[in-house]
């Protein structure tokens, strides 16, 4: 794994982008997009996080192993959200078979 030296110029650019995105996320928070509110905020946050991971943390220039680890970490977090979310999102539903059974008895 050879070390890749990132030049300061690209750090400044990333920093500028992060600051702009921070300002943007504050501004859009005062507008109501309805259901999209959180999606907009999270898209900006994910973009910022991706910039930090790829460039400040050099993942863009890192080995495949490092990239795999980063993806795996977020993938497992996604597993937790999806599986726990699947419970909470379907809490209200009761299968027809069960309601029929309850009515009959």
């Amino acid at each position: 794994m050879s070390e890749h030296i990132v030049q300061p110029k690209s750090y400044y650019k990333i920093f500028g982008a992060l600051m702009v995105l921070t300002a943007l996320t504050v501004v859009v928070a005062f507008f109501d997009f309805g259901a999209l509110n959180d999606i907009v905020a999270m898209t900006i946050a994910v973009t910022k996080a991706t910039l930090v991971i790829l460039f400040f943390m050099h993942v863009f220039y890192s080995s495949r192993l490092t990239k795999t680890i980063v993806v795996a970490g977020f993938f497992w977090l996604a597993i937790m959200f999806v599986m726990i979310g699947s419970d909470y999102l379907s809490r209200g539903y009761v299968p027809r078979g069960i309601t029929n059974y309850v009515e009959r008895h």
């Binding site: 109501d32 905020a41 930090v52």
Partner: peptide, 25 residues
């Protein structure tokens, strides 16, 4: 240490909109 520091930064990047910015509209 840089990696660690950036990670802590990333956590905050998510905390800021989730804690401060919901319900401003």
């Amino acid at each position: 240490t840089g990696l660690y520091w950036h990670f802590v930064d990333i956590v905050w990047i998510f905390l800021f909109p989730l804690l401060y910015l919901i319900g401003r509209h």
